[in-house]
Nucleic acid binder design. Structure first.
Lengths: 351, 351
DNA sequence: TTTTTTTACGCAATCGTTCCCGGTAACGTT
DNA sequence: AACGTTACCGGGAACGATTGCGTAAAAAAA
């Protein structure tokens, strides 16, 4: 079932004009007499004419739309970023099309190819955990196709990027745990290949060192699928808990990991924050409603989306190839709630 | 900055052939000699040729992509539906493009126009709270454009629809509250214009009647923006609580309302489920982690997405105009957790 | 050898739109 | 009267790909 749209040709025929004249009349060209314009515009209105954007895209080689690829839209952080992206995009007359990789490289590439070949004018992306082969990105980038990376960025590709200070976010959170008296702080990390994992773990390690806590590799567990697979988080938690270094707190480095961690502790009857402190990166707006309310490192997601889009539009609308790129680094917010607590007694025992 | 793609013409020129020959060679036509085919295909491979889907869309008037419009992707229910949609769509070689209305009629129309004019081959939609003017949908429908409604459907438009048995879902939940001893059951409802609101409230009312509970219009409050605006839920809750009929339980008819309700009770120190029982429609996967764990009516969201997509593909791929449409009605699931409790003492006092 | 058939390719139209060229009046200027 | 302007409009190519039709050359049949 196809359905027929009305074209400029229909108008031309009906009015005894040429398509050029109709086109010009609709675009309000000075070359067309006011009467003809009026005639054309009114008739177009009447038969409900809308220009065919596909034909326009073909002709103008641009579509006034931008693509966004994230691993999962159900994730609060990403949906907030998308809202930021849409707000700027719509204000500038751009449409936004959204794709999910679900942490799969293949699906990421599928989306990417679909979008680029459909002439999105640019792309905003946070790469999947599986993405190691960057050749397609490099190729696009070298051809001058506008890309902005956010959150999970890649160093090798010269373009604009938007992130938060992951190092500091993690450092502050882990330092807070240490100052509160937690002594064995484990880390539940995302795939080791991601920029955010590296940065956050670096902050974690630095905080341990600065608080004279020993670092222990058995206290760090990675989730290769970023918690997309529930089992994976469970396994990691199980490993963590049966390590000889019984942790008394967990630092989780992603939204899904933080909630997954809490879920595990809850179902296994481990009391938070008494037996185990929990702090993690999360942008869920349900954190206050959780039991216990989660202490989180929160990212300015909406703002990240806005900034990424502004940068992308700069690239798209620039006449000359852009050569100097910037990496915007925003600051995180540490929100202390009920999943961590000050353990005076620990400090006392120590001292 | 545009970037140049390689076209069939480039291949033709490089190989001294015509574009027709190249096209046919790539499509493996019998009219082309094996040697020429090999030549063309290898060269195309080498320079990384991909057919331009825009040009194809223009020519074939179809795009092998379907549009999805929901009010908000951050909502678990909708993101689960979208996952169901994508699973079927990808298996059938269709791409999915997603749009958010954010409960705004204008944004819904913007997305709709964008999608239809970009030649999506069909549309899956749950309408916004603001959508009263259905003329554009009617027009599309009459032109034979394939649409499938789900969740928030409209009666006036003859096409496939996918919903759950909202009446029964609400009826069962409210009956459960009544059987548990709650006597003053209030309803926190979505916009009155939505099909789901009507159906769910009907179930609510029937359950009250069947359990000899009095219905009281002051115990029903509507949120015109479906809880999209936080203030709105707060106001509704405030009104409910200061009504002379002090409710002892709340039935919330949408995801955002259920969590919004819980948030209000929590911040105002009203104990759930003791002072106030809470039950509501919700597909959040964090319900078990909440304090208290939410008793919910859960919809088979993923399955709804799958079914909606199958129906849509039927419409799209049908040769003749489809005349008899079906409305698939799935069943909800009642999950009782900690936000409701059996209040034996109430029963006893009563008796 | 001549005729027919097959093979293998090119031409040109098509999809809807824009825009570069032209072209033709009407009018003004010298 | 001759030329230049200006206003207004149409023809047709172009964007990238497909496809019906035409046809030259080669192969097969007569």
């Amino acid at each position: 079932m196809k359905f027929e749209a009305v074209t400029i040709k229909d108008i031309a025929k009906a009015l005894g004009l040429s398509t050029s004249t109709v086109s010009r009349a609709l675009r309000d060209s000075y070359e067309i007499s006011p009467e003809t314009k009026k005639l054309v515009i009114e008739y177009a209105e009447k038969i409900n004419y809308h220009p065919n954007p596909i034909a326009l895209s073909l002709k103008e080689r641009r579509s006034r739309s931008i693509g966004v690829i994230v691993c999962e839209i159900a994730n609060s952080f990403f949906s907030q970023v998308i809202n930021g992206i849409e707000s700027i995009a719509y204000n500038n007359g751009y449409n936004v099309i959204i794709g999910q990789s679900r942490e799969s490289f293949d699906r990421e590439m599928l989306n990417l190819q679909y979008m680029t070949s459909r002439s999105v004018d640019g792309l905003i992306i946070s790469i999947s955990t599986e993405t190691h082969d960057l050749s397609y990105f490099k190729e696009l980038n070298q051809k001058g196709f506008p890309i902005v990376f956010f959150d999970r960025i890649v160093d090798e590709i010269p373009t604009h990027k938007v992130i938060v200070d992951n190092y500091k976010g993690a450092y502050d959170a882990v330092t807070y745990l240490a100052k509160s008296g937690y002594r064995k702080i484990a880390a539940l990390a995302n795939s080791a290949s991601l920029s955010i994992t590296r940065e956050r773990l670096a902050g974690y390690r630095a905080a341990l060192a600065d608080n004279s806590l020993e670092e222990d590799e058995t206290m760090i567990h990675y989730c290769e699928h970023g918690g997309m697979i529930a089992q994976e988080v469970e396994d990691a938690m199980k490993e963590l808990l049966k390590s000889k270094q019984q942790p008394d707190a967990i630092f989780a480095s992603a939204d899904k990991l933080t909630t997954g961690c809490l879920r595990y502790l809850k179902t296994h009857g481990i009391r938070v924050p008494d037996s185990m402190g929990v702090i993690g990166f999360s942008n869920t707006d349900l954190t206050e409603l959780l039991d216990p309310p989660l202490s989180v490192i929160r990212q300015p997601a909406f703002e990240m989306g806005e900034i990424a889009t502004s940068l992308l539009l700069q690239l798209i609308e620039s006449k000359r190839p852009v050569k100097d790129f910037e990496t915007k680094v925003l600051t995180t917010e540490l929100l202390i709630r009920g999943s961590t607590k000050e353990q005076q007694q620990f400090e006392n025992i120590k001292v």
